[in-house]
Amino acid sequence: MPTPTAPETPLVTIGDLFEQWAADRADKRAPNTIKRYRGSIRSFEAFAKGRDVRTLTGDDVFAWAVHRRDRGGISPRAINKNDLVAVSSVFRWGAGRASGQILASNPAAGISLDEPRIVPQRERTFREDEIAAILSAALAVQPDPRNPTLSNAKRWCPWLAAYSGARIAELTHLEQRNIRTEAGVMVMDLRVTKTGEPRTIPIHSHLLEQGFQAFVKICGPGPLFFDPTRHGERSLTSPGELRGHKVGKWVRATVRLDPGVDPNHGWRHTWKTRALGAGIEERLRDAITGHRVASVGRRYETPTLAMLAGAMNRFPRY
């Protein structure tokens, strides 16, 4: 009598494993994180050419990382910080009990590329002439009826960043409903953040004097700085992030910014430096910019809106 044949184990690709991980982590990870990981996973899946995830080894992961560096032109630091973190997170889950231990182990564990030592060529804050050039260029932007949200982003996002230290994508995701008044203070609710933790920031009086509140009122409901109808739903990069990239490119091209400073992120360094000079307490500086506090004890301190508004009132005008 013939021996029964064991059923064949179904193929599990890297993409299959990722979708299972994403479903399990949906309530534990920020949506932006899952979306960001998806791009790295798709790259690795294309490199592995549909192989079963259980056949992959550390050598395969390392070869892919080298391919990303040498063929894709991506820096080792970006690969270590983004691609390998994404793949390792998914594989670690695949080797855990939550997944039913699909994998025997995490093949990406301990894999990294050597990062060349980078010596900064200058400070990360904007210099006074750069501040004046960027903010003057933003003030001079005229409404563009062909793409109004782009001209709106060029006009307001540099100024919002200058007076908040917020990340550019946190600002470009703002909607009309995120600008409101609470206890007599005009605030902006940043709902799309790097950490996934929302925060509320008082709006500096100089922005209100420039007409920011009136601008928000005439925009109507929805995003202030991008048009959702212009962006495909399957794009790996959110429309707010894409808009932030465009603002950065516009700033660099318009003011011929020094390549050693980031046209968007430079405002975070500049805001914190100016806030320090204005005597604003570190805990308040961290609360406004969304930086994690340094100690467990500080996590018990939640600055009130009145405290944050007082700090913003002390922040010097440009």
Rank of each mutant, 00 (worst) to 15 (best):
D27T: 13
D27I: 09
R29S: 14
A30T: 07
A30R: 08
A30N: 07
P31H: 13
T33V: 01
T33E: 00
I34S: 12
I34T: 15
I34Y: 06
K35I: 03
K35F: 03
K35R: 15
K35A: 09
K35N: 01
R36C: 05
R36H: 11
R36E: 10
Y37S: 01
Y37R: 04
Y37K: 06
R38F: 01
R38Q: 02
R38E: 08
R38W: 08
R38T: 03
R38L: 01
G39L: 12
G39Q: 11
G39R: 13
S40F: 01
S40V: 00
S40H: 06
I41K: 06
I41E: 03
R42F: 07
R42Y: 10
S43K: 07
S43M: 04
S43E: 06
F44N: 04
F44S: 05
F44G: 01
F44Y: 14
E45P: 07
E45L: 14
E45N: 13
A46S: 15
A46T: 10
A46F: 06
F47Y: 00
F47V: 01
F47H: 07
F47P: 00
F47D: 00
A48W: 02
A48D: 05
R51E: 14
R51C: 00
R51V: 09
D52Q: 07
D52V: 00
D52R: 04
V53K: 02
V53F: 05
R54C: 04
R54V: 00
R54D: 09
R54M: 07
T55L: 14
T55H: 08
T55K: 13
T55G: 12
L56T: 04
L56I: 10
T57Q: 15
T57M: 14
T57Y: 11
G58T: 15
G58C: 13
D59G: 14
D60S: 11
V61G: 12
V61I: 15
V61F: 13
V61S: 10
A63D: 11
A63I: 11
A63R: 14
A63L: 04
W64S: 01
W64N: 02
A65S: 14
A65C: 11
V66H: 04
V66I: 12
H67S: 13
R68K: 15
R68Y: 05
R68W: 01
R69W: 11
R69Q: 15
R69G: 07
R69H: 13
D70G: 03
R71W: 08
R71C: 12
R71P: 03
R71A: 13
R71G: 05
G72C: 05
G72K: 03
G73C: 04
I74E: 06
I74G: 02
I74S: 08
I74D: 04
I74K: 09
S75F: 00
S75C: 06
S75G: 04
P76D: 07
R77I: 00
R77P: 00
R77W: 06
R77H: 05
R77T: 10
A78R: 09
A78E: 10
I79L: 07
I79V: 10
I79E: 00
